[in-house]
Amino acid sequence: MAEENFKPKILIFAAEMAYRAADMAGLTKSEYPSTTYIVRIPCASLLRPELILYAFQKGFDGVFVASSGPDCPFMGEKCVDKTAKRVEKAYELLKEHGIEGERLVLSGVCSTCVETIVGKTEELEKTLEELGPIKKS
């Protein structure tokens, strides 16, 4: 159940195009939850499943892997598969550690997909409000 005043902390790993979308969210003066923290990475295929787990263990309530999707400037469509594999493995790790899978989302975000990055973040926030804070390990 949701706790009073619980503002979930969300970590967004933003690959090249998703980072641009986040920039454009700013340019178009969109708004999204303020307890979101963007870490810039070139491509989401760089993410080690252990790093995603690490974020939860350190206290993030949710993680959003915002990849460049098929627009990835490094490998195009191949990025989708590679990133999905990383995230799948991360789900397994989360399960092993008793962390709800719903806390982790993956989405391809093109450089102009303001709605995607804003929408997915808001969705994740809602989910996390339902789930409540992560238990710290």
């Binding site: 070139p42 491509c43 295929s45 760089l46 080690r48 252990e50 490094f74 990025c79 590679k82 990383r86």
Partner: peptide, 23 residues
């Protein structure tokens, strides 16, 4: 190398790092 870091993401030993974005 174009610097995507995919090799680092798959390495079972964390033996590969992308410069500028090390784990």
């Amino acid at each position: 190398c174009i610097g995507c870091g995919a090799c680092g993401g798959i390495c079972p030993e964390e033996a590969i790092n992308l410069r500028g974005y090390r784990y």
